[in-house]
Design a protein around this nucleic acid. Structure first.
Lengths: 210, 210
DNA sequence: CGTGATGGATAGTAGCAGTATCCATAAACG
DNA sequence: CGTTTATGGATACTGCTACTATCCATCACG
C-alpha cells in the first residue's frame, strides 16, 4: 500500500499523513527503494486511532504521540498508560481560584474521596481540576450544585465500574491496554454527549414555558 | 473601580481585560470622562465567570461571548440558553466515520434514546457527536464498550436528574438560567474529573501487577 | 519515454488567545 | 504646580497548534 491508497482507505489527506509521519505519530512505512515506501494494515488502524483521538476527543497531537508511544512499548505498566490517558484529558491548569477558596474546595473533595473509599494519589491531574472546579462553582455562587458532590461521585462510580467491566473482557494485555486508553478517552466524549442528551430531554419537560 | 483595581480583584491582567472588552465579553465601564471609565461589582462577577468558562471548561472565547449574550437578554427562552451551552461543549465535527458505520451507530443510538424514553431533537449537536463516537469505537474494534451503551445511558440519566434537581432550587428565572448554563458547562468538567478519579482508584486495585 | 505519484525537506497558513506598544489625557502624589 | 503613574482606545505583534503548500529528485506505470 502506498501513501495515496492509505489516504483513500482512511479519508485522511496525504499531506496530513506526511505530517503525522514527521511528528512520529505514525510509524514510517517500509522502504522498498530510497524514495518509495509501503504501508500495511497496522498503519490503517493506527491512523484511524489517531483521527479518533484528534477529531472526536480533541486530544492535542503532542499528547496523542505520547499515548501511542506508551501503547507501543509494553514495558510501560498499565497504570502508567492510564496516567497518560488522563493527562491527555486534563490540560495543564494554572490555579485560578484564591487560596482560601481552593483550601475549602480541597477539603470537601478529599472528604468525598475518602467517604467513597477511593484511593487517589495527590498528584493526580484530575484532582487539581476537580478542586479548581469546585472552588470556581462556589465563587460563582453555585453552591447548590456543589452540595450534591457526594451523590455525583456515587453515580459516576457506578458507570465507571461498567466501563472497567466492559474493558476487562479483553483477553491479552496489549488489547487490554489499548481498550483502557481508548475507553478512557473516547468514553469521555461518549458520556459527555449522553449527558447532554439526557439534559435536553429532562429539561425540555421541566421548563417548557420558560 | 478602575481597570487596575478590577485586575487586582480578579487576578486577570489588564491587557486581557482590555481584550475581553474589545471582544464584547465584558460590558464597557461607565465613562466618567472621555478617557476614564469605572467598573463595578457586576464586572467583577462577569469576569470571574468568563475566566471559569475559558480556563476551567476550555470554552472558546467566541462561544463564551454567545453564551453571555443570551444570558443578558431575557428574551431568549431557557431552552435556547441550554442549546447554546450545549453548542459550546460540542465543537463542530466533520463526519469521520464511513456511511455504513454511521448508519449502524445511528440505529443503535436512536434505539437507546427511545428505550430510555428521551425526547431529543434530531438537530441536537450532542447527537451527532454520540453517533460519531459510537461509530469510531466500533471501527476501532471496541464493541465491548459499546454494548453497554444502554447501561451508561441509565447511569448518566441518574446524575443528570441530580443536576437538574440542584439547579432547580434557584428562585428567579434569571438565576435559574445562569445556574443552568454554569452547571451544564462546569458540570462537564466536574463529572469528567470525578470519572477519572474513580477510574484511577478502581483500576489501581484491579490491575496492580500489569 | 512521458506522465503522474512518492518521499523528504522546508516554508507558509489560519485561527485562537492573548501581549505589547503608542499616545493623548487624567489622576495621584509631593 | 509639576512630575510620575495609570487609563482608554487603537493598532500591531507574538506564540502556539494543526495543518497545507511547494519543491525536487526519484520511482512506477502504461
Amino acid at each position: 500500500m502506498r501513501i495515496g491508497e492509505l489516504s483513500r482507505a482512511t479519508g485522511v489527506p496525504v499531506p496530513t499523513i506526511k505530517y503525522y509521519l514527521r511528528e512520529g505519530l505514525l510509524p514510517q512505512g517500509e522502504l522498498t527503494s530510497p524514495n518509495q515506501a509501503s504501508y500495511g494494515e497496522p498503519h490503517v488502524r493506527r491512523l484511524r486511532l489517531i483521527r479518533a483521538l484528534v477529531e472526536i476527543a480533541q486530544v492535542p497531537v503532542a499528547q496523542v504521540k505520547e499515548i501511542l508511544e506508551s501503547l507501543d512499548s509494553d514495558a510501560v505498566p498499565l497504570h502508567e498508560q492510564i496516567g497518560r490517558a488522563h493527562r491527555a484529558l486534563t490540560p495543564r491548569r494554572k490555579p485560578t481560584a484564591s487560596d482560601e477558596a481552593r483550601e475549602a474546595a480541597a477539603a470537601q473533595v478529599t472528604g468525598v474521596i475518602s467517604s467513597r473509599g477511593w484511593s487517589v494519589e495527590p498528584e493526580a491531574p484530575a484532582l487539581t481540576t476537580l478542586i479548581e472546579t469546585v472552588a470556581a462553582l462556589r465563587t460563582l455562587g453555585q453552591d447548590n450544585l456543589v452540595t450534591f458532590l457526594d451523590a455525583y461521585a456515587e453515580a459516576v462510580e457506578r458507570f465507571t465500574e461498567l466501563e472497567i467491566e466492559a474493558v476487562s473482557t479483553n483477553p491479552t494485555r496489549d488489547q487490554l491496554a489499548e481498550s483502557v486508553v481508548i475507553g478512557t478517552i473516547l468514553g469521555e466524549t461518549l458520556i459527555s454527549s449522553l449527558r447532554l442528551l439526557a439534559q435536553e430531554s429532562i429539561s425540555a419537560n421541566r421548563w417548557k414555558k420558560l
